[in-house]
Nucleic acid binder design. Structure first.
Lengths: 223, 223
DNA sequence: GTCGCTATTTATCGATTGAAAAATAAACCG
DNA sequence: CGGTTTATTTTTCAATCGATAAATAGCGAC
């Protein structure tokens, strides 16, 4: 029996009527991946492939033509969020010695939070962190190596020190400052519990407090 | 057919042999709830009641004698973690005017992190935050009302100000400081990515930075 | 037009899920 | 010992899960 696919009222009323739309393989995969990021960010990685397919307006087995398994799809979501949204230019903002150190740090955190203060990014980061996936820990190491260490080195240089090698205390204090800014994003985007909608204020205050305290942190470390 | 329950080698070898142990209803529920906190903290709330029962050494339907549904069990887990672990004495540490303000804030955060820097507490907080449950937002309001607002008021008083009413900027900056400390716990316990295992250093540096910056925050707000 | 490729749907499988109902037995009382 | 209570297990169900295989149809080539 031949079914009329353009039939307006399908047999199952709950089902969205499916008009087949053939898409080029590449852009279809792109569409799936983009939606998967949004979907898993909102619902968590335990959510079903059927629900994802439903929101895409396709059937669930079609996903398996583009991704061999659910966990493979999730891996590609991680890659999109963690790897592809990292900007190598961030390091340049920190080390641009033509500008005062405060300006550089503020400029960096404005650029950085432009990327990570997104609902999708934040939620996927938090979900994957709780799952203990490897990519999360690698991301933390990347932040330390490419952001925090350069920050501390530049601040040391700005203070006229010849030895630029950061101590553990300095790195930890840079982490704390970083965490304070990051957690503002979590409060704003996830918990909807921020008081002030002013990213500039948050970043400037945090950087100023960091710069005021870092000398003492350094002194304590050497004592 | 009568089965011998004391049989040493049961028919299904994978099954842990179940010797019925009748427990008083109250302590059984207590046992279930305690284990449920640990279990859901580790595995997430999407994990199955069967696996929880397996770890408890009982059958899955027995859980439903003590909790009407899975979501009810989860609610009671929330209550245990959020409500029952809150300490009213924390506020007293902040407002104890016989001590210098710095000592009070350090003492408070040592006491506070004694409770929340626990794997269970942290993970359940993060899981429930991502699920957007109401109790999470209520907790954030509690922190603001019972911790951050008193802190800012005491700092204002210490600075000799007559008006103790906090501005939004002050509360937000207190949140940032709080978040920096909190995020240290997340890094240590969840991401296993802390540099320094020294809670005293983290709290003292954070409080010192806070106290050095708060005047400027207050000035900017009034301008 | 019609033929071939393949994007898409249909149908289905085995495992797992939360939950209810019924059967069983441990503990207490007389 | 016999009887009652109820904690616990056994059995079972309907939904839902990730995944596979087969059927179907859109679309470009000729």
């Amino acid at each position: 029996m031949v079914r009329d696919l353009n039939e307006i009222s399908p047999k199952e009323p709950g089902q969205p009527l499916q008009r087949r739309k053939r898409m080029a393989s590449e852009e279809r995969k792109e569409e799936f991946l983009t939606k998967a990021i949004e979907f898993f960010a909102k619902e968590g990685f335990e959510s079903s492939t059927r629900e994802l397919a439903r929101q895409l307006g396709v059937t669930q087995p079609l996903l398996y033509r583009y991704f061999p398994s659910k966990s493979d799809l999730i891996s590609q979501v991680y890659d999109r969020v963690y790897v592809q949204r990292w900007r190598d230019e961030w390091a340049d903002l920190i080390t641009d010695r033509s500008r005062p150190i405060r300006d550089r740090l503020v400029a960096f955190y404005l650029a950085y939070t432009d990327v990570v203060f997104k609902d999708e990014w934040m939620r996927i980061f938090l979900f994957s962190g709780l799952k203990g996936v490897d990519i999360n820990r690698r991301y933390m190491k990347l932040v330390r190596a490419r952001i925090l260490t350069p920050i501390v080195r530049e601040v040391r240089r700005d203070a006229g020190l010849s030895d630029l090698e950061p101590t553990d205390e300095e790195i930890e204090f840079a982490w704390i400052t970083h965490g304070g800014i990051f957690y503002y994003g979590v409060r704003t985007l996830i918990y909807e519990a921020s008081v002030l909608n002013n990213r500039n204020f948050v970043i400037e205050s945090s950087i100023d407090a960091f710069l005021k305290q870092i000398d003492q942190v350094r002194t304590k470390a050497s004592s």
